[in-house]
């Protein structure tokens, strides 16, 4: 599965399982957060990644987070 910010490109090239991230230079981080919050964000991304890996898909599928707007 793929953790990335450029979701439209990931879909276009056919990545089956995609978890969107917040910035190109830090796929599994967010420097705007404090250290604890950033760690929690990274944890959420990886948990979502495991959920994506356990989910059957037939085409490029984006796994959005519940906490995302």
């Amino acid at each position: 599965m793929l953790l990335c910010n450029l979701v439209s490109i990931a879909k276009r090239v056919g990545a089956p399982r995609i978890v969107p991230t917040r910035g190109i230079p830090y796929p599994t981080g967010d420097p705007d957060l404090g250290p604890d919050q950033e760690h929690a964000w990274r944890r959420e991304l990886l948990e979502r990644a495991l959920h994506a890996l356990s989910t059957p898909v037939t085409e490029p599928t984006v796994f959005e987070g519940e906490r995302e707007g």
């Binding site: 950033e38 990274r42 948990e47």
Partner: peptide, 24 residues
Amino acid sequence: GGFSTQWANEDPNRILPLDVAREL
């Protein structure tokens, strides 16, 4: 070479999420 590596090099877990992977 495609972006500023400033944030990645402050905390490389932002590129390779090793800390959380070890937790899991």
